[in-house]
Structure formats: C-alpha cells, structure tokens
Design a protein around this nucleic acid. Structure first.
Lengths: 232, 232
DNA sequence: GGACCTAGTTAGGCCAAACTAATTCAAGAG
DNA sequence: CTCTTGAATTAGTTTGGCCTAACTAGGTCC
C-alpha cells in the first residue's frame, strides 16, 4: 500500500461514482473529465498510468472507457468511506448542515489516518449512512446496496420515503431542506406533468404539495413504503 | 489570498518555528533543510520563490539566511493556529494522547477551512494553549509570549512548573508521560551533573526524583513558581 | 597570505499532473 | 460503403517541488 496521491484517489472515486449511478459498467473519458473538472487529455494520461500500475487499478481500453479492477474498487471504497464518515462526523459533532459537509469532506478525505477514521467510526457507532443517505462502506470495502429508485421513476400515489439525495449541489440541498424534503420524509407523487415537466410531491400526512423540476427530482432517490422509524 | 500550497505553508511554519526557538532572527538554509527533511538545494530554490512572491513572504539574502516578512509571518501563524487547534481538538474530542496528535495535525492543518477552524475554536472555548503547552495564535495572528526558560537553565531548588514541551518526538513524550513529567507538573531541579550530565528533577510534594539527560531537558520549558491551578 | 573546510548556491534533470493544439478513431447517416 | 462529426488520443508544454553533482563564498588555521 504505497500511499497514493490525492489525484489518483479522486480519479478512482469518480470512476466508482459514475459507474454506480449510471447503468453502464464502463466510464467514458469525457464523463470523468467533466466530473473532475479537468481536460479530457489529462484524463487519458492518468488512465494510462492507473492501467499500468501494479496492482492494476483500472481496466482501460482506448476509446472504450474504463472500469475499476477489484484493487481499484477497494481503494475507491476506502476513500468513499473516509468521505462519508467525515460528512457524518461534521454534521453530528460540529453542527454542519447537510449542504456544507461535502466540500469540507472532499478536502479531508485524503489526509486522515486509518486510526482517525476508526475513532470517528467508533464514536458515531459504526453508522450505515451519511447525511445524504449514501451508504458508508465498512472497513473491508463492503457496501450495502438498497433497493432504491429515482424519484422520477416512482409511480403515482405510490407511498415512499426519501432514502438518498445527491450531495454535489449545496444550493439544491438548501432548497430541498426548505421544502421539507429531507432524508426519510414520507412522500408520494400526485402528478407528473408531461414533456419532462415538474413532479408534484405530497408530504404524506400533510396537504403540502411541491412542484419539483425533473433535474432536481433526478437527484433524489426513494425507497418504497415508509421508513422503519416512527415520526417524532 | 491565492491559496498556498502545503509545501509553502510548511516552509513558512518551519522558518517561524526555528526563528522563535533559536535566538537569532535569521534562519539558515541548512537548519530549514534538516527541519523539513529535504535537500539544501531544494530549500534555496524555494526561498527564492518565496522571496519573489507578491506579497513578499520572506526576506532572503544569499548566504545570509531568511527572515519572515510580516505577510509571511501572518501565514505561518495561521498554519500554526490550525495545527495547534487540531492537536487540542484531537486530544479533547477524540481521545488522542499527547504523543499521537502531532503527526495527524501535520496532515490536517493544510486542508481545514477557516469555517471548520472557527467551529473547533468555539467548541473548545477559544483555548490559549495546545496539549504540549504551545500558545495558540488568535485569528488575527496575535500570539501570547510567556516568560519561559529551558529546564536546563533553571536554578537548583527553584520551584517551577512545566509549561511547554516540544511536540516533535512522540517517543520522548511517552517517556515523559511515564515519569509523570506532564504539563503543569510542579518540579524543582535538585542536582545538575557536570559536563552536560543529567539533571535530577523532583516532583514537588513527593519524594520522586528522576534523572533526565540534557537532550531531553532541552525540550522542556518551565515557568517559575506554581501554576494557577490547585492540585486535584 | 594561501590552503582548506563547510554551508550555500547554481546547473541540470526528473516526475506528477495538469494544459492546448493537432490528429485519429468510431459509429451513425445517407 | 463512404462521409461526417464528435469523442478520444497523441504530441508537446508548463509548473511545482524535489533531486544530485559541481561549483563558490567566507571564515579558520597555520
């Protein structure tokens, strides 16, 4: 474990994230470039390096995109574990709100020691999910996969609860917060406007209905039925 | 404030530390190289850059060493504030012992945001010193200077308390911990062996006496008289 | 004053990670 | 089957931070 550079960790993390949110297993150079905010040529260069490393971290084929190898995925999951534990820690211990944690965690994730990670995990009681509902991998790189669907895929009047929200846009997170569309909120779709128009979302148990644009709705994931928890 | 690289921050911090522990105001290239663990030539190169930056961060003259400019000192103090707040936070909130905090803080100090720094400072009640007794600069770069002397300078039977210990050697910190020579310990020197031999240190209120080598004693600073606190 | 030593500097290179500009590939349209 | 077009790659630079090796400034000792 020859201690990787932050850049390498970021590439692996990005590949993992794109890979797991889209449904194709290969990730394109441009998708990565956009996600990381660097030029395409830079991505090509880095992918060649990752492909040549020992152990091989990705499976890269010219013009065909990349896949993580098991070794690469392991590292991606470690970084993700750091990221999500830090997000949760910042929110639990230091009073950060869910729109503030992401940026700070991106900086911290590459520098905390395994020891600090363990202490944080223990202090938090080995939590399963971060403040946005994303699952936290365990130390061995196991990650729990839940049966989630995109909010846009949810049927009309099908009760569900918000189980996860993308953490990438703080402004959107603040917006959702204001609407009461937070983690575990019980909701149903009452109407889907055609031509990719807005979704009408009702908070179950209330008469509150919000119209949500598709772009926003795409970043929200739900699980059918209610959450285990009682309402307070 | 064009966000400086970790390397630059480390150079400035090191210059500040050497400058404030030695009594000459100019820091030599070699002292810096040793402190940072890089080659001399690398230091020369970096000093030229720091000297050419706008604003000028150091005052560097060939063959004469460097000094921090006010701008450089301000940055050094910000880094030091980060470092020491993190050390204290790790020890207070996450159960780190005083020999473990330094390494972790060295990694974290370059990446925490001002916001996180503020939250930590507030949570800790705007503390004055870190776990090794080093003063924590305030946000404006003011640092309290106390009247400390090296333990080796302390007169025989002159009662004093340990007010600061160098944080650089974890093994030494563990050793001192075992001997009960922790922060604020009330001590006196009962005997100084000649020819740079060991010092005999008595813990006031006990019969416990330890013989301490000069190298170790050089890293310990004391303040005359007792600390404000009562014994528990 | 010349010889000598050490700290400090210059010169020249290396590596990682980015960039731009120019070229090549792949895959769908006609 | 060829053409076109957008995605991807190559080639060539740049920048930052480090290295080694070779040279120089300045002080010490006889």
């Amino acid at each position: 474990m020859t201690t990787l550079s932050p850049a390498v960790e970021d590439y692996l993390k990005a590949i993992y994230e794109i890979q797991s949110e889209g449904d194709q297993d290969r990730v394109s150079t441009s998708a990565l470039a956009d996600c990381l905010g660097v030029a395409r040529a830079s991505v090509t260069g880095m992918l060649k390096k990752l492909n040549a490393m020992d152990p091989k971290l990705v499976n890269y084929i010219r013009y065909r995109g990349v896949q993580l190898t098991p070794a690469g995925e392991k590292i991606a999951l470690e970084v993700l574990r750091h990221h999500r534990l830090i997000e949760l820690y910042l929110s639990e211990a230091l009073g950060y709100s869910w729109d503030e944690v992401h940026q700070e965690a991106d900086n911290l994730e590459h520098v905390i020691s395994e020891d600090l990670e363990d202490r944080i995990a223990t202090l938090l009681g080995h939590p399963q999910v971060d403040p946005h509902g994303a699952p936290i991998p365990d130390r061995d790189g196991n990650i729990s996969r839940r049966e989630e669907v995109q909010l846009t895929q949810l049927g009309i009047h099908q009760p569900a609860h918000i189980s996860r929200v993308s953490d990438h846009d703080p402004a959107m997170l603040r917006y959702l917060q204001e609407l009461g569309l937070t983690l575990n909120a019980q909701i149903e779709v009452t109407e889907k406007a055609p031509f990719s128009g807005p979704l009408h979302i009702r908070l179950i148990g209330t008469e509150i209905v919000h119209a949500l644009g598709r772009q926003v709705a795409d970043y929200i994931f739900v699980t059918l039925g209610s959450t285990g928890r009682k309402k307070s």
